[in-house]
Amino acid sequence: MVGLAISLLLLGSAPPAICTAPPDYYQITLVPTRRVPTARLARGTARLTYADSPFGIAVSARGHYRYNVEVVVENLRPVPGGEFVAWMATPDLKQAVRMGPVTDNVRGRTEWNKFLVFITLEPLSQPPAARWQGPVVMRGLSRSGLMHTMAGHGPYEQEPCAVYGYY
């Protein structure tokens, strides 16, 4: 088994060293999709820390959190003729960012409210594309993506979801 540690960090300046493990609450567990046989036993995590900011927390002028993302993957075995590429995207996939091959020390940052982090297997022979072409190997959802409507649940179970646009 080959272990890969992928750091997908701050765009621009070199990221600061992490002296202790960041808290796990908002970390994104990357789950193998089983679509690539060599990756079925892979494990991974996307770790979030706030982007560099004089305020401790980092937010944009519109109030979005700004996160650095660090991905650590284990047991992701190389595939001849292919390379694993990391991406981030909004849950509806309307916006996506190619973070880069997992063999590189790619740096990236996000300020989407809810987002996916995923790894695809792309053909080595083709130039980098704006959208992935190969199969999704591992994927995870930001914890904010778990926030869902309360309609139809608990004390609101009499509130029909459809009224609020959910079906």
Partner: peptide, 13 residues
């Protein structure tokens, strides 16, 4: 004051 507010009922920012 520009924020991403949360509507917990709808589960949305």
């Amino acid at each position: 004051n520009a924020i991403q507010a949360i509507n917990h009922f709808r589960g949305e920012f």
